[in-house]
Design a protein around this nucleic acid. Structure first.
Length: 160
DNA sequence: GCCAACGTTGGC
DNA sequence: GCCAACGTTGGC
């Protein structure tokens, strides 16, 4: 059994929020629309069933990690990539040779309180997160177990 | 709404 | 293969 890994997924809540995920049937959704090779490679090569996912709201008020999820289906072809009506349609991708991949995630729990970007920026234990690197725009990114533990612990403690 | 950072595209 | 132009991300 490989060691559990941890990830942070960004989403603009005006497009798709954590509430939207929890409202899905079985709280499970296809994470489609990723059109960045680095992110695609991580989904394809590194994400395994059971890996932990922090759900982060970008371009939001507030910008914050709002809850947890986990991987329930490992990488497979993102069928929206060859759908001309899809927002992230890519004419170079097709069912015979899919360029883009996605995973499925299942929402777990909403934090008792949101852990905001400003809070992450000043937390000495979270200074290595890609999230706070200038210009780091990866929509899915790896985090360490320590970072996961820290944010989950803060998120579940209303008094922290 | 602005714009810095960065990935992608396409002419050469 | 270089690199300028362009588009997007996403914090501010």
């Amino acid at each position: 059994m490989a060691e559990r890994k941890y990830w942070l997924f960004k989403s603009e809540p005006s497009t798709y929020s954590f509430t939207d995920l929890l409202n899905e049937e079985d709280q499970t959704a296809e994470w489609d629309g990723v059109r960045n090779y680095q992110a695609r490679n991580m989904m394809r090569d590194d994400m395994k069933i059971g890996d932990g996912v922090l759900f982060y709201h970008s371009n939001a008020k507030p910008m914050a990690v709002v809850g947890t999820a986990h991987i329930v289906k490992e990488a497979y072809a993102d069928h929206t990539s060859w759908d001309p009506k899809a927002k992230y349609y890519d004419p170079k991708s097709n069912p015979d040779s899919p360029t883009w991949m996605m995973v499925d995630i299942k929402g777990d729990e909403r934090f008792a309180r949101e852990i905001t970007l400003p809070e992450i920026k000043v937390n000495p234990n979270l200074q290595n997160m890609l999230l706070i690197r200038r210009g780091m725009r990866l929509s899915v990114q790896p985090i360490t177990k320590d970072e996961w533990d820290e944010i989950v612990s803060l998120g579940n403690d209303v008094d922290s």
